[in-house]
């Protein structure tokens, strides 16, 4: 069953592009990654799904309910963590967490305390005194204390130190084991590769790929080739992203492998590695070369 499904979801801000004809499906119980550079439309997609902005055209359903007409019912089962959490000036952390629970009409004190302890969050502090990382922690507690069935997280780890990032993902995986679906928007690709089963890539408002993380990595026949003993890449078609080193050169190759091998045989090589590119390179590849695999 799809937890999130969008049908030609489009949002324009006046004439400015937000997202165009987005068809996205997130299945129940998966950790889904949503990848794209800044300004690609990640936040617009999330803000539309949450009802903060109205779609220009198209539709979307969450828990099989319409995002416009059944917004409150959907929001009661969602935990949302914005990329930049802002709270009411002058309020204490405990007040914010209490206010969030109260709007969910739930007593979440036990769960909130557990989360605050694990994240080492001082609930007596005023929100104005908090660093970005600590504001993120407040946001995590507000997003997870009511045991949501869908967590929508917009660049959740920015501002968190590595130890807290680890703890955050541990908490998230526990929530996932309890049956929640996780929608994780990020431009940190290592996060997506490590934690997500499926992912979608968005660029300039359009979805350009949506598949399992393995398939996305293998979806292109590009290879990362590193040569030792020369600093010049072969001058043949399909060589991109050339990175010269001291006595080496590395490049991305997508072309005729026979042609590459015969070209390599003429070079004074000391060593050679050919690897599959990681998701980050795939992403750069999609983004820079405007390959459309859908």
């Amino acid at each position: 069953m799809n937890i999130i499904s969008t049908h030609n979801l489009t949002k324009y801000y006046g004439k400015a592009r937000g997202i165009i004809d987005l068809n996205l499906n997130v299945r129940e119980g998966e950790i889904f990654g949503f990848i794209g550079p800044n300004g690609a439309g990640k936040s617009t997609t999330i803000r539309t799904l949450l009802g903060l902005i109205k779609p220009t055209s198209g539709s979307a359903r969450i828990f099989d309910m319409d995002i416009v007409s059944e917004k409150e019912a959907i929001l009661s089962r969602i935990g949302y963590m914005p990329s930049e959490a802002m709270f009411y000036s002058g309020m204490k952390v405990s007040d914010i967490i209490g206010m969030s629970a109260s709007m969910h009409k739930k007593d979440c004190r036990i769960k909130a305390k557990e989360l605050c302890d694990r994240l080492q969050l001082d609930i007596k502090k005023k929100v104005d005194e908090l660093s970005l990382g600590n504001r993120k922690k407040v946001s995590i507690v507000c997003a997870l204390q009511h045991d949501p069935m869908l967590c929508i997280l917009d660049e959740p780890t920015s501002g968190l130190d590595p130890l807290m990032q680890k703890e955050f993902f541990t908490i998230l995986k526990e929530r996932h084991k309890e049956g929640a679906t996780i929608f994780l928007s990020s431009h940190v690709l290592s996060e997506i590769s490590r934690y997500c089963s499926r992912a979608a890539i968005i660029r300039e408002g359009r979805l350009i790929a949506s598949d399992t993380v393995e398939a996305l990595s293998a979806g292109t026949n590009a290879r990362r080739v590193t040569l030792n003993g020369t600093t010049e890449a072969p001058r043949i078609d399909g060589v991109k992203d050339v990175v010269p080193g001291d006595d080496s050169v590395s490049f991305l190759f997508q072309g005729n492998i026979q042609e590459l091998l015969s070209e390599l045989s003429t070079l004074p090589l000391k060593d050679l590695t050919i690897t599959e590119p990681d998701l980050e390179e795939i992403f750069m590849h999609f983004y820079q070369n405007e390959v459309n695999v859908l």
């Binding site: 803000r47 009802g51 409150e72 019912a73 929001l75 914005p82 709007m103 969910h104």
Partner: peptide, 14 residues
């Protein structure tokens, strides 16, 4: 103005 609308309106309140 204070960017708190996002916090408020992503809760289940109309």
């Amino acid at each position: 103005k204070n960017h708190t609308a996002e916090f408020l309106l992503t809760h289940p309140v109309s």
